[in-house]
Design a protein around this nucleic acid. Structure first.
Lengths: 341, 341
DNA sequence: TGAGTGATGTCAACCTGTGTTAATTCTTTG
DNA sequence: CAAAGAATTAACACAGGTTGACATCACTCA
């Protein structure tokens, strides 16, 4: 029933060791030998015993994904992309939701890596932005890939997948400007997430380019939550000089702002335009649907995992270019910023 | 650096064999010996090498969670609950999103179980309701637990966690009735999910109890999606005799109905009351927020995993009652069904 | 005192690959 | 054609536990 490496060797007419070499794509195996072995592997449907492999080689074939993100859609998309890549490369994915603000989060991550003997780790914000985590992982010599906000690849960010929040935010702001808005407010996300800062910078740059001085009262600090959007919009609409458009740092905040506007009987988009960021499913399910920036999270996650495997797999064929991926979320226009008819 | 079973044995002053006995909670080990060993385990922070354990015992310490559910919040909650239980029992969780409608889904599941050598499986709808899956798993002798709709435990459902959708739907319908509505429509979920049928039955029972004849036009088939809610509500509001309340099979459908009502300029709840089901986060983020039934998914998942471990762990202490858990989602009243002032 | 019992210890085999070494068998190529 | 180099093999230790057979030991109870 169970097929061992022995069976494969016999079937292919080679030694066990050669099969092992092929399975681990070690160098110095002739092309036709590889073919022979792979033929046998396929014929017998051989699946190496992961446990035995781990034990013998003391490296594992699973990577971890640590997250602390209230946005279920984001997490699910990330998982999906990571799993896709894992399946392709014969790895397994270990998910680890946790609390980023826990005082001993660094130790927790280390324990996880060591106990589960992870080959590598994928980090998303806020973990990808915590120097203490990166330092600890480097110290124990575990590969990891970070998904972070940024626009320009650099050697320092060699193990990063970049998301160009700046440019995307610039585009959204520009869209609002083109609709004729000049009093545009910005609802920030969590300060410690650099994405919030980048988006704010993009917003400011777009205003500056048009020579519009940013009104400091229009920049409202907050966090990536519905509640924050509710409060932020309320604050804005209590100003003597109200904005005519709100750019929220993500869709959830935007949904909160929408909610708030509704409570105050403000018509969207006629009296107030609202834009979000992320293109999460509920940006389509609010009323009116939200203008936003689409972030291809599944693809981003895939690329992150690919990048990770390039490091964890010692002899992998480096067919993929080693360029750092940079993703620019694309503008998605919906009714929340429609031209008032 | 790495602590082996040897170190523990030495530290506890017992033999390796005894440590092994304790780690696998075999019978006939004296209480104080167990304590001694566990003390050593804790002192040394010993974590048995999973790979070695799997290999030697040819049983694994991971369970799988197969899902195909567009509702990210549901999936995340399930994962959270399963992970909690897994951590507690030293298991790992393998997640496997897939397509339930794939023609060779049964084979896919079997491959997964065999390749990853899973100790057990947790199934949620629609997988938990597919006889072919259950049959296949039984055939290959893998433990599994199903989370399904139902109200009465029975030996046949011994490996199930039940969710009493009927009673919860009854309560919601009753709530609407108490508000004075008698023209209540029902937006169905996917036909193949028994939860939809159960909720429909609960709705009908509540009406029947008041002696209200159900209007067949008020029962609209559909699926568990926002779009389905949009279309369903539209259909209902085009009837010559319109309902005064809509009970949607879940929050997403309800959100769709809400959206639709807004398009048609129907005031909620003044002209139309809407209730959902599930208490997913966005039931709080619509406007107005949705009345719904709260399903404690994290807890449900935990219980499901516990139930599973009771079977996979040969000598587990059966402290927990072996009763089948039945969860009755609780009514959560919000503004979407408020009394019109 | 001796039999019976329950709790431990000893020891070796085993699970399935990997890493190493030394020896052997092709391939090149000068 | 010989020598060098590359690919392959055989054989075995090893990773870190589990498992089973059996021996040992301390107790209890007759």
């Amino acid at each position: 029933m169970k097929i061992t490496i022995n069976d494969v060797a016999r079937h292919a007419g080679v030694s066990i060791k050669t099969v092992s070499r092929v399975m681990n794509n070690e160098p110095s195996v002739r092309k036709d030998t590889i073919d022979k072995v792979m033929a046998a592997v396929n014929a017998l449907q051989y699946q190496p015993n992961a446990a035995a492999r781990n034990l013998a080689s003391s490296r594992s074939f699973s990577i971890g994904y640590i997250y602390d993100n209230p946005n279920a859609y984001y997490v699910i998309d990330m998982q999906r992309g990571l799993l896709d890549a894992c399946r392709k490369h014969g790895y397994e994915l270990l998910i680890h939701p946790t609390n980023a603000k826990s005082p001993d989060i660094v130790q927790e991550v280390i324990d996880l890596v060591q106990h589960s003997r992870l080959a590598g780790l994928v980090l998303t914000p806020p973990f990808s932005e915590m120097p203490s985590i990166a330092a600890a992982l480097e110290k124990i010599g575990v590969h990891f890939v970070r998904i972070i906000s940024g626009s320009t690849p650099s050697p320092k960010l060699s193990n990063c997948v970049l998301i160009d929040d700046f440019t995307a935010a610039f585009k959204i702001t520009n869209h609002l400007l083109e609709l004729g808005h000049s009093e545009i407010a910005f609802l920030c996300g969590d300060e410690e997430h650099s994405s919030s800062g980048e988006r704010l910078a993009g917003y400011q740059a777009a205003l500056a380019k048009r020579g519009i001085a940013a009104n400091p009262k229009f920049i409202v600090p907050g966090s990536y939550s519905f509640e924050s959007g509710v409060k932020g919009a309320q604050k804005l609409m209590e100003l003597s000089k109200k904005p005519s458009a709100i750019f929220a740092c993500n869709d959830e905040i935007a949904a909160g702002a929408l909610f708030s506007a509704r409570l105050m009987n403000i018509a969207i988009p006629q009296q107030l335009a609202i834009a979000g960021f992320e293109n999460s499913p509920f940006s389509r399910q609010t009323w009116p649907p939200l203008t936003t920036a689409h972030q291809p999270n599944v693809t981003i996650a895939q690329q992150a995992a690919e990048l990770l495997f390039r490091h964890t797999k010692p002899n992998a064929t480096k067919t993929l270019s080693d360029k750092q991926p940079v993703f620019i979320p694309e503008l998605v226009v919906r009714e929340s910023t429609a031209v008032s008819e």
